[in-house]
Computed example of a mutant assay.
Amino acid sequence: MAKTNKLPFDKAGGVIAQQRRMLCSPAYLGLSAQAKVLITLMQRHWTPKGPVGFGVRQAQQEIPCSRTLALKVFGELIEAGFIALEDESLFCSRTHSKTRTWRLTWLPCWNNRPPTNDWEKRQVSISTGPFSIPESGSQVSNMDH
């Protein structure tokens, strides 16, 4: 007889899970704290039915941060390969406005397309204080230099 899962996940509000492989990657570790927050905020809106609508104003309010920093954080996630712009925003006072929409590259896309994991394809090298983490992910001490 199969055991039922008794983990205390929130069934009413849902759960956001992220790949350990992604969270340990040099690409993720090299992100600013605000970019790491934005990844989770955007994933909260993900569905397999279409792109994620998330704008600069929403990022400003939810991170919270300035407009300049919000724009920088979106750029950081694009450059690192975690998000890709699907559709630009549109503001028109006479008609309906729409927010930018994004594809989260670590998650499956609509129409059953698998994740592209663009973040794995980027060349990164991050520096974290006395340690430098090369692309392979192994730690090398810089204290002797």
Results as ranks from 00 to 15, higher is better:
Ala2Tyr: 09
Ala2Leu: 12
Thr4Ala: 12
Pro8Ile: 01
Ala12Met: 05
Ala12Trp: 03
Ile16Trp: 02
Ile16Ala: 01
Ile16Val: 08
Gln18Trp: 10
Gln19Trp: 08
Gln19Ser: 15
Arg20Pro: 05
Met22Lys: 10
Met22His: 01
Met22Arg: 07
Cys24Asn: 13
Gly30Phe: 07
Gly30Ser: 06
Gly30Lys: 00
Gly30Ala: 03
Leu31Gln: 03
Leu31Arg: 06
Lys36Pro: 01
Lys36Met: 07
Val37Ile: 15
Val37Leu: 09
Val37Glu: 09
Leu38Cys: 04
Ile39Gln: 03
Leu41Glu: 06
Leu41Asp: 04
Arg44Ser: 12
His45Cys: 08
Thr47Trp: 03
Lys49Thr: 12
Gly50Met: 07
Val52Lys: 00
Gly53Ile: 05
Val56Ala: 02
Ile63Val: 15
Arg67Glu: 10
Ala70Glu: 10
Ala70Tyr: 02
Gly75Ser: 12
Gly75Arg: 11
Leu77Pro: 05
Ile78Arg: 14
Glu79Trp: 02
Ala84Lys: 15
Ala84Phe: 00
Leu85Met: 14
Glu86Ser: 10
Glu86Pro: 01
Cys92Gly: 09
Ser93Val: 15
Thr95Met: 10
Arg100Ser: 15
Trp102Gly: 02
Trp102Lys: 02
Arg103Lys: 09
Arg103Trp: 13
Leu104Arg: 00
Trp106Ala: 15
Leu107Asn: 04
Cys109Tyr: 13
Asn111Gly: 01
Asn111Phe: 09
Pro115His: 01
Trp119Val: 06
Glu120His: 01
Ser125Glu: 15
Ile126Leu: 15
Thr128Gly: 06
Phe131His: 11
Ser132Glu: 14
Pro134His: 08
Pro134Asn: 13
Glu135Arg: 12
Gly137His: 02
Gly137Trp: 01
Gly137Pro: 00
Ser138Arg: 14
Asp144Cys: 05
